[in-house]
Design a protein around this nucleic acid. Structure first.
Lengths: 133, 133
DNA sequence: TGTACCCATCGACGTCCGTCGATGCCAGAC
DNA sequence: GTCTGGCATCGACGGACGTCGATGGGTACA
């Protein structure tokens, strides 16, 4: 785990300002230097975890079809029986996928009579798209 | 597996044109009809499989950080030793994630001397973003 | 009240995935 | 040649995930 963490102390420092490290630096730079040039981190670990969990909710063929089918509806919503027939899977499986999407904030659920209607949240979908922007 | 596939034969047909199915249709429509209204499919199964495999490549916190770190670089590229130190994981693990991203077409790999430099492919990233558009 | 139906939850199973140490390949330096 | 170092691949392990049948809650209708 702790192998190489303290080899490159380059956060915010140029390669010349790096003090002598604990272990050897790969200073055998023949065709230009390597370690510690320009990599300043980018996304934080917490942001990456949150964004990945959001993307995981969409990164499934069944859930992509569910979202696409709901969006293709004229009313902008669909009930479980519709979607179950569409994807050709068992009803508990479809309910599971719809729950994943709902927990991620991508779908809204409304109980109307005996049926449960699902409607997608465009702002949340745009937020997912913004992760890759 | 084959339960409910032939219950709602509504692809391209309105609910009135649906012939008498093999089993019972849920025709007890009290508060408005349900099954077969407005759901015409949306994304095909093959498209969903392909799009999901693309999204799966990005739906991982480590891979998100790798992409973000490479993009934050001034030169637009980074070698494995940089990224290994950044994410704090073992080198084989980082190599594995980079291979996943490269196989998905999101990264390009160039061998220069002893090091392997990775550069991201913006068009492919835009393609991923277009899935949710 | 009883029946029929839609849907969510539970428990279990098989598979996929992330992670690592060990190993091997390749390029430079001596 | 030998040695060193960066990187990819392999094999194995543990956990997460997709799928299903069984079950139960809730609503509508007779």
């Amino acid at each position: 785990m702790d192998h190489g963490i303290d080899v490159c102390q380059y956060r915010g420092l140029s390669i010349q300002e790096v003090p002598v490290p604990v272990r050897e630096l790969p200073l055998t730079s023949t065709t230009g230097a390597c370690c510690g040039i320009g990599v300043d981190g980018g996304m934080s670990r917490a942001d990456a975890e949150r964004s990945a969990s959001l993307l995981k909710a969409v990164a499934d063929p069944v859930r992509l079809r569910l979202v696409s089918a709901i969006r293709a509806t004229e009313a902008g919503e669909a009930c479980v029986c519709d979607l179950t027939d569409l994807v050709g899977l068992a009803q508990p499986t479809v309910s599971h996928h719809l729950k994943v999407l709902t927990d991620a904030g991508l779908l809204e659920r409304e109980r109307r009579g005996s049926w449960a209607w699902y409607r997608l949240v465009p702002e949340r979908l745009a937020e997912v798209r913004g992760i890759l922007a």
